[in-house]
Amino acid sequence: MKLTVDQLHITLDRTPILHNVSLEAREGDIVGLVGPNGSGKSTLLRAVYRSLRPAEGAVRIGDDDVWALSPRAAARRTGTVLQDAGGNTTGLTVTEIVALGRAPHHGLLSRDRAEDHQAVTDAVDRCGVRPFADRDYASLSGGERQRVLLARALAQNPRLLVLDELTNHLDIRARFELLDLIRATGITTLAVLHDLDLAARLCDHVVVLHEGAVVAAGPVLDVLTPKILADVFGVRARTERHGDGIIRVLYEAQPLADEEALEDDSRSEGTRPRPAPEPAREPPVGAASTSANEKG
């Protein structure tokens, strides 16, 4: 289902965290939310999975305003996987963790129904966690755990997936497997990703968040330009579509020094096409006339 974030303002302890953030994920799209640490990505997610009430603005799934729904009704629409969620799962098996996804479908007095078992079984099979379904969750590896948490989210039968750094700490193979899994679900997804290359591979659209505001949004190749990569992330890099259709972000070895960025701004040249990426001491990537710093 379509996700619309409409002119969101969020303040935490009187400090504004997000200002006037809008974005949209069309039905079935995977939208990547990228930005440096502290840019407000996780805060935005919290407003979507109904943990942090925005001061202004709305989050809509389909036509429903998430904050006008009850917590349970919202959780029936949105499946969420968070990183380092804490808690203490000692004694819970994998299947029991996945079954937590059925919680929003139940009131205090209702018992488990056939559809609950079906949803849990489907999610377990889909995410390939059947082989360790009866094991203690605490005994699993990082990659296995993430698959279990994704299964829990899928057991909710959600219309929207919200993923915060799902692939952190995972080896490359586990990452790709997880991404394929998400693609295969066909569920509209909003995913915070630190790894830009991964975002480029996975996402239909990316939204770049910087200092609490959206600085760019759209298809990967249009958004992850050398200028944005330099201004927002402080790296010299460019994004290319390869013969196999996969979009890759190519980084240069040297990060952009702060002075260089400033120098760039003052020169205000137009964007130049980059030559081959090998030499480390290339002149910095050209910057356009406005910089993200001015917008932040």
């Binding site: 919290r46 999975y49 109904r50 943990s51 009850s70 917590p71 349970r72 009704a73 919202a74 959780a75 029936r76 949105t78 969420t80 968070l82 969620a85 804490g86 808690g87 937590l100 996804g101 919680a103 929003p104 909710q156 919200v162």
Partner: peptide, 8 residues
């Protein structure tokens, strides 16, 4: 946070 996301 996960409990909140599960509608609690």
């Amino acid at each position: 946070e996960s409990a909140t996301a599960l509608g609690v």
